[in-house]
Design a protein around this nucleic acid. Structure first.
Lengths: 193, 193
DNA sequence: ACTGTCATGTAAGACGTTACATGATTAC
DNA sequence: GTAATCATGTAACGTCTTACATGACAGT
């Protein structure tokens, strides 16, 4: 149900088409949730059938068309229900740590390659998240601006603070993974001697 | 392919039945990978069809039966190939951080409930992983003992070190999540004033 | 004319979850 | 005898990925 909640969260700020939602999943919200078009379009139709959103057909030029989705009161309630419901924590499935547990079965060079790739992977994420925090602080985040525009004055500070808090968590996680990979590289060195 | 790799990793230490593998996924390896029986049994059969494992039928009592799976040289090679291949990092899908980004839309009490549950969730994991590290240090980890028994002398230190390293990473991650949740609780307090 | 981006999808398959079904053996 | 645990599955469903299909519009 998290895809649905992510879609509702975006649509609650203002109507969007499937295509625009897809774009959001590559930028802002994409940092915490991702979905391809092939998942979004069918989900939107199911949500419309269930009355959580309504589609509004628009024309573009002569024959072009797109469908803007609006959240209904039922959709709004569904989102808030989700926000209040206990999160379903999934059982761990962590390929990187699984592999780490068996690094002695490959050559030190190969172990290093894995750990360096892990570090690189998280450095890339870290860079994205840090720059997102800078954009939030500078008031330049487009998604946050859009949200603040429809937010009552007294909630603006909270909206910004929680958004920043979210990214801080991601940044800390990335730093933890990077530090772990570096300790792994040091361990490979130590074991080789 | 990670389920397959996890199964091969376990079977490389020694033959096991589907039932025993299932058990392992609730304890030792279960800390980094989980799978229910309904996934394990069919996967083992597919792996046998592909020649990665061979099943050996055994009897138990009068009519009882079980099937012990052994890794073949092809299975061994497949595991090492996986160890050497680049890890497929999945796009983020993080319900907890998704929710955190919208905490201003619920009451402070509800935001606190979510953050406390998050902290609790990770404290429970942390306790498990820390006790696993203590077991490793005390030489009491059954899975590690089993692995060390089939490991050449010169690789024993590495095997133990990588196993500990894996759990250290999990412990650090849990601590990061706990610290984040606590900062979130402090933030809720600050915003309420 | 051609490229890029807007726009919406289908199809097939891999992966995972939950619930249920069935029967044997072991320990009390 | 009865409960626990050993042992192996099936069925239905939900989620997610990858690849492909189709066409319109906008700018050069």
């Amino acid at each position: 149900m998290s895809l649905r909640s992510a879609l509702l969260a975006l649509l609650r700020v203002g109507p969007m088409s499937g295509y625009e939602l897809q774009k959001q999943f590559s930028v802002s919200v994409g940092h915490v949730w991702h979905a391809p078009g092939s998942q979004i379009y069918p989900e939107l139709r199911r949500m419309e059938e269930e009355g959580l959103v309504v589609g509004e057909d628009q024309t573009r030029g002569e024959r072009g068309a797109r469908r803007l989705y609006h959240v209904t009161p039922a959709g709004d309630a569904a989102f808030l229900d989700w926000m209040r419901s206990p999160l379903g924590y999934l059982r761990v499935r962590d390929p990187a740590h699984l592999r780490a547990a068996y690094l002695e079965s490959v050559e030190p060079a190969e172990a290093r390659a894995f750990l360096r790739a892990h570090e690189e992977q998280w450095r890339a994420e870290l860079a994205q998240w840090e720059s997102e925090i800078r954009r939030i602080d500078a008031g330049e985040s487009p998604m946050l601006q859009r949200r603040l525009a429809v937010t009552a004055d007294e909630e603006r500070a909270a909206t910004t603070a929680y958004k920043r808090f979210t990214y801080e968590g991601l940044v800390e996680r990335a730093r933890t993974e990077i530090a772990w990979a570096q300790r792994g590289l040091a361990l490979v060195d130590r074991l080789e001697r």
